[in-house]
Nucleic acid binder design. Structure first.
Length: 425
RNA sequence: GGGGGAAUGUCCCGAGCGGCAAAGGGGGCGGACUGUAAAUCCGCUGGCUACGCCUUCGUAGGUUCGAGUCCUACUUCCCCCA
């Protein structure tokens, strides 16, 4: 299953040390291949497939993306496969419900949006270790059914496919598993084979839930082409208290800045549980391990310093150093000094609206601090809604020009962490 | 093919004699304590033009002053017999 330590190659050593490894197939063979690169051998080309079901990635996808980054850092070649073709089919992935199928256009526009994230974390180009991006729709959509069955279908037995968890789970719960979904794993195996032939790709990586799917590809390549092929999966990343990662005060932790601001992204990392700091530093920042060890050793309130480093580094990777610093300063102003900073999230309100005044619940709704006026009122009654740092129990109160405070803005807060500035324009 | 169950607050699980905005969890949010942590304790957890009104219990009808609750048909799922 899992692997002995003591890898020779930089790549696997790093992955092991930083907590990326869950399972590896043929670990020794892969280690040798990876080590040869340093001695003048060819870089390893490795790929990870990504679904194109949303317009932005989520922190849950970040491990995989960072994994490609590590690969490139170790002198190998990352291949990003966008699942334009497989997204048309849908991975059964253990869920009970059949996934909603997306249109061609939706998938394409999702892919365009997702590309921007990769551009920040990987170096693309034509060089031997430059990353490339391909869409599996390119070959999958051209597959003829009869040819597909004859060329690939013969290598898969139903008996075997029925043993995979993704399939087994559905069947055990007697939930429907459609034929289209059942074919997902064949398509993924086909991807790997195709990439092996086109780019000499020898390694497919992914989350631990992809292990079975990846092995199918490994076996297909080894059987059909007698070429080397390897599988490597990452563990499912959860928080120390067992929750799956990826919630913040503002909802899901998106990687695109238009869906989650750098400030909120910074806050997400800043609020990491104590027990997770070291693990997350290793996975989600480029800091050297000895530096991480030092931060990890901090005790008590001092561990907050480590969380700030984590927030700074993780934000800088994704949004750039400048944005990370702005977020850090905004947070410092808001939390340490209790003041306001221009970089906090804000909304604009016309000055004219303040002469009759705006009910607080309406304003809180506009600011995104509540999803309905009723919620805003409840929040206020519970003492969680603040105007200029003063709890305001009456959400129907009119907010007027008299509430304009420091810096010419009105500071609205829901709880201690969600702050929105109301700018008068 | 025959027989018997089930579907509940659009996050999930789940109780519900004909008067129900609907018990109880989980999750989430807010408060207290702390360190913007965890654990713990407390409160909230349909909407609105808000002492009132509107929309919710698989779908569509019906009985009734009144239906989540009774009846009919339909849909989907589970169990038993063939």
């Amino acid at each position: 299953m899992s692997t002995p330590a003591n890898f020779k190659s930089d790549f696997l050593q790093t992955l092991q040390a930083r907590g990326y490894v869950h399972q590896i197939s043929h670990p020794d063979e892969l280690d040798v291949a990876a080590a040869q690169t340093a001695e003048g051998g060819a870089p390893i080309a490795a790929y990870i497939g990504f679904d194109a079901t949303a317009t932005s990635f989520h922190v849950g996808n970040l491990v995989s993306i960072m994994l490609l980054r590590r690969l490139q850092q170790a002198g190998h070649k990352p291949i990003v496969v966008m699942g334009g073709g497989t997204t048309k089919v849908g991975d059964p992935s253990g869920k009970d419900a059949t996934r909603q199928l997306l249109t061609h256009e939706q998938i394409q526009s999702n892919i365009d949006s997702l590309k921007t994230t990769f551009a920040k974390l990987l170096t693309f180009g034509d060089g031997p270790t430059d990353a490339i991006m391909v869409d599996n729709d390119e070959w999958l959509s051209k597959l003829g059914y009869i040819d597909f069955l004859r060329d690939y279908g013969v290598h898969f037995t139903i008996n075997r496919m029925l043993t995979f968890d993704s399939v087994k789970l559905r069947l055990e719960r007697e939930q429907p598993l459609t034929f289209i979904e059942f074919n997902y794993m064949l398509m993924q195996a086909t991807d790997f084979l195709e990439l092996s032939r086109r780019y000499g790709c020898t390694l497919q990586m992914g989350g631990s839930d992809q292990w079975g799917n990846i092995l199918n590809g490994v076996e297909l390549i080894r059987r059909v082409d007698q070429k080397p092929a390897f599988a490597l999966t990452t563990p499912l990343i959860t928080t120390a208290s067992g929750a799956k990662m990826g919630k913040t005060a503002s909802g899901a932790v998106w990687l695109n800045a238009d869906r989650l601001s750098p400030y909120d992204y910074w806050q997400f990392w800043r609020n990491t549980e104590d027990a997770d700091v070291g693990r997350f530093l290793k996975l989600f920042t480029d800091l050297p391990l000895d530096e991480i060890a030092r931060l990890e050793a901090l005790q008590g309130a001092e561990i907050n310093d480590a969380k700030k480093v984590l927030a700074n580094e993780a934000t800088a990777l994704l949004h750039g150093r400048a944005e990370a610093e702005k977020a850090a300063e905004a947070a410092h102003a808001a939390f340490v000094q209790g003041g306001v900073s221009a970089d906090l999230p804000s909304i604009d309100v016309p000055a004219a609206a303040l002469s009759p005044g705006i009910p607080l619940d309406t304003l809180a709704l506009d600011a995104g601090l509540a999803t309905s006026k009723s919620e805003a009122r409840r929040l206020a009654q519970g003492g969680g809604l603040r105007v200029n740092d003063k709890a305001e129990p009456d959400a129907t109160r009119l907010i007027t020009a008299e509430d304009i405070g420091e810096g010419g803005v009105i500071k609205l807060a829901a709880g201690k962490k969600k702050i929105v500035l109301v700018r008068i324009v």
